[in-house]
Write a protein that binds this DNA or RNA. Structure first.
Lengths: 214, 214, 214, 214
DNA sequence: GATGAATGAGGGTTCATTCAT
DNA sequence: GATGAATGAACCCTCATTCAT
């Protein structure tokens, strides 16, 4: 599931490998920094290497090409988002639909905000062709987790939990960037969370109460 | 037929001008085609010119630079979206909130689908720095139109129509791309419309019934 | 001596030709204006045509190419300079060397100042390869005129009037631009004239008094 | 050997740096060669790079753009001229005015001739807009040095040494190019030096003897 | 004659990637 | 392993010149 470019997370063995790990991390962090300060367009391998304090050559020893670098960053972001949603769902497996809605929205926004610096740039990356697999992975995990939570909700029956989960996921992954950066003022994070929660709750309620014919 | 950058919507005068118009249009359409087939990264002025059947020089006679080209395309798209929403709102000024929700969702999705070819690429453009003004324009128009319609809805009172309008706009402009291209399969346009409508309706209902403390 | 591109100065015959003349003049003046305001680098045929109020095509009907345009301007300038010097020399054929020096310096500076706007740009042109013929023409005329005046000066005998004339011409054509635009402040035209006169007078005096062995 | 843009006049350290130095020098020399053979108009970065035996990319690693390249060449030339004049003045601080005149003329011509290949092209560069600072630097140094030497001349008092120094500088920097390349034949270097010296000597004499009213 | 749209070679510049040291 | 100088394809853009109308 990881691509060859992220030798992260593996058990470290020797000092040599430790240094390698440190280097990879430095490059990784430098990428995020450059992304934040110069944007996707201003990002080039030389600049990343310089910011990481290594030479371009070294960069290419750990990441086969520029794409791999960006994928690694995007991957970590999406994995974090998916994990946050899964965690929220797991912790609310038998809760009420209302609570689930609130928990999921909160968890997603927390994770999103934690990387607020990069996320706009990441969305640019994610729209470039080959990131689909990554995005699919994240949304699939989200849909699965939310779907499972909906199916086991203590106070409601959903005719099609999967469809509802899909809609909520789409609203989350799609709405939030627009929410954060365009329509609502930057400081309105609180309000965004509140409104999203209301929207999700009432949407779920509608699905429970048979308002919709499906 | 109309494009934002040509001041030429008037009765044609000379063969000279007709030729110009044809050329601008050809370039404009070529840009959309290249965007669809090669993506934003694969788009370069030479390629656009070739596809338009003109020389690079000609391209630069009508668009001062590459950005201007992309802006023109994006502008047309966003203007179309905003206009569609405004029209839907105007036609439902004194309708019920439910009907408004349905009309807005439908109008937006119609407009979006009409340019389904380009819209993914357009979202890439819109994330590049200087498109903010364009996006702001479109979302402002949407917020204003929806806000006005909510304020004059026949069956409901909204404590803060502007905030609700903002949320709906964010959900529309943010959700739909994700909806259309990632989570739901391409053919699911119908379903997307249905779910979005439910979400909007119930969200509006929640705001009417005082469920939310605001 | 005129090259084919300047049909100026010929007797006009028909209204058609008069219009032509007006057009050539307009283009000619436009060239000077663009040269003054945008410099040699900022000068292109389209801009000149626009400033002249004609189309590029028309421009190319009167001047076969860009070079011809610039040559025409440079030619007029250099012809004016040479004529001014010749006139001053003719009017001082039997005067004293001192008076000749003064008259030549004054005449040259007057002519130069009259076209102060363009002359810096003209010097750029003149340094491009093919202007040598033009410059040679002007300096040859200057050398011939000054040489003749020196040879017939009422108060002095010059061992080699031609050599002296060459030196003075070189000093004139070379010094003045530097004088006007770099070393002396712009307002120092008076002072420049005074110093140049002193230099010329004393140089001539040196040649008369046998200070120099030649 | 020294060029203005390289901060590398220090003891060589690594093969890395030595290679860099060799490359910068190669590019620098190639620029001069191309300038000599193809002129300013025929000079483009590709051609320079090819002549230097490197790729364009390499060229841009050492000079941020084409201008910088030309500036570097012009700067070296002007610095050399200014230095030559300063040296001549320093060595004749308490000499007679006559000797000073001779020394300065000789020094300037020596320096000029040493780079005879490029100087015509350099004068083209120097007329492009942003070279003023460079030229001002050189003429200021010349004026200052000559002024000081005049003020301390053993056999003369000058009412306004600065003005005289300005005039001589203008005559030097302005006359010589015309001298060398236009009016006098190339081989006449000797004669040019002789005449210029006479002109300078007599001009200085005129200022000493009170001929001029200033 | 006049027009100005069209041409396209050519120039400056960038940057992902390689490889000798 | 690390370095960073070198590479060169590719891109954006300009402008002298032509030619159909």
């Amino acid at each position: 599931m990881e691509n060859g470019s992220s030798p992260l997370l593996n058990p470290r063995k020797s000092p040599r490998q430790e240094r390698s790990i440190a280097t990879v991390d430095a490059i990784f962090e430098a990428t995020i920094q450059v992304l934040s300060s110069d944007g996707l367009i201003g990002l080039n391998t030389t600049r990343v290497a310089r910011r990481a304090g290594v030479s371009v050559g070294t960069l290419y020893q750990y990441y086969p090409n520029k794409q791999a670098l960006l994928f690694a960053v995007l991957e970590r972001h999406l994995v974090a988002l998916a994990a946050a949603i899964e965690k929220a769902c797991d912790e609310n497996l038998t809760a009420k639909a209302d609570e689930l809605a609130e928990a999921v929205v909160k968890a997603y926004l927390r994770a999103q905000m934690a990387q607020a610096e990069v996320s706009p740039a990441l969305y640019r990356i994610s729209l470039e062709l080959d990131a689909r697999a990554l995005i699919d992975m994240a949304t699939r995990r989200s849909v699965a987790a939310i779907g499972a939570a909906l199916a086991s909700a203590s106070d409601a029956q959903f005719a099609d939990p999967h469809l509802v989960a899909q809609t909520l996921t789409a609203a989350l992954f799609g709405t939030v960037p627009a929410f954060c950066h365009r329509v609502l003022a930057p400081a309105d994070g609180r309000e965004a969370e509140k409104q999203l929660t209301i929207m999700f709750r009432s949407y779920l309620a509608a699905h429970q109460s048979g308002v919709c014919g499906s």
